[in-house]
Amino acid sequence: MQAKRTVFPNKILPYFLLLPQLAVTLIFFIWPALQAVKSSFEREDPFGFRTTFVWFENYRRLFIDPLYLSSVGKTAIFAFSVTLLSMSLSLILAVAVNRVLRTNRLYTTLLVWPYAVAPVVVGILWWFMFNPNIGIAPYLLRGLGISWNHRVDGVDAMILVIIAASWKQISYNFLFFVAGLQSVPNSLIEAAAIDGAGPFKRFWTIVFPLLAPTTFFLLIVNINYAMFDTFGIIDATTQGGPAQATNTLVYKVYSDGFIGLNIGSSSAQSVVLMIIVIALTAIQFRYVERRIQY
């Protein structure tokens, strides 16, 4: 790994510099993670007196549990929809902002602030808009002859959390797309214009392909976001319901473990999630290495 050409000769000092970070990491990250792995192989008796080592029993039960498998499916639908919706809206807005000159900063300011809104608050805002009794969205939908009630209708609930989660992520995707668009060399666009390509053709044949690294990066980040950072949104809007319709994997770990106190199963679910994060991080970092060579 890279270091400076010349380094300081001290041998003890670097350990002291690293100590706080490593202490926090070991105590609050690595040790608990190992505990989760350990208890994913154990089962507690109902009174919590004894734990027995049960090998992969927790995992086996997990993968034949229809509720868990349904949660996997719900998470996939949720992550895919949020990623697609949020990224496409952001790309449109980023392309538009990239075209305006003077008002560029103003629009950017007006579009990026939702980044700072906590997921729970996002959940509350959209929950309010879609409130079946007084919300504006059900009111308008009734006008169109559609009845909305995310408290009883699983599809409605899923749509609600997708919209809320996408709304929050637009600002993030927008900023990265703008940065990506600005790094497309102007000379390429001018060359394409001289070659007779109109603005839309230029976008699809020149700009969009050159944005591929940004798009791929955002794809991974958005999947990661939808899976792990939307806990607050779900907790504030549907709490996994109705009838498990929006119970994503992360929410299920929490509700099974912390509310339901089923430690073995919750730990096994945690380990599965860890493997997913590790895979996503590995993909992301492999890509970063590639971008450096790009």
Binding site: M1, A3, P14, L18, Q21, L22, T25, L26, I27, F28, F29, I30, W31, P32, A33, Q35, A36, S39, F228, F231, V250, V253, Y254, G257, F258, I263, S266, S267, S270, L273, M274, V277, I278, T281
Partner: peptide, 27 residues
């Protein structure tokens, strides 16, 4: 040095959501 780097790197892969209960227990 490399071990220290990777130890720090690993925290990226362990968001609080996946280690809720054991971290709660430590605290």
């Amino acid at each position: 040095r490399l071990l220290a780097f990777w130890t720090i790197f690993i925290t990226l892969m362990l968001p609080v959501e996946v280690r809720i209960i054991p971290t709660f227990k430590v605290v």
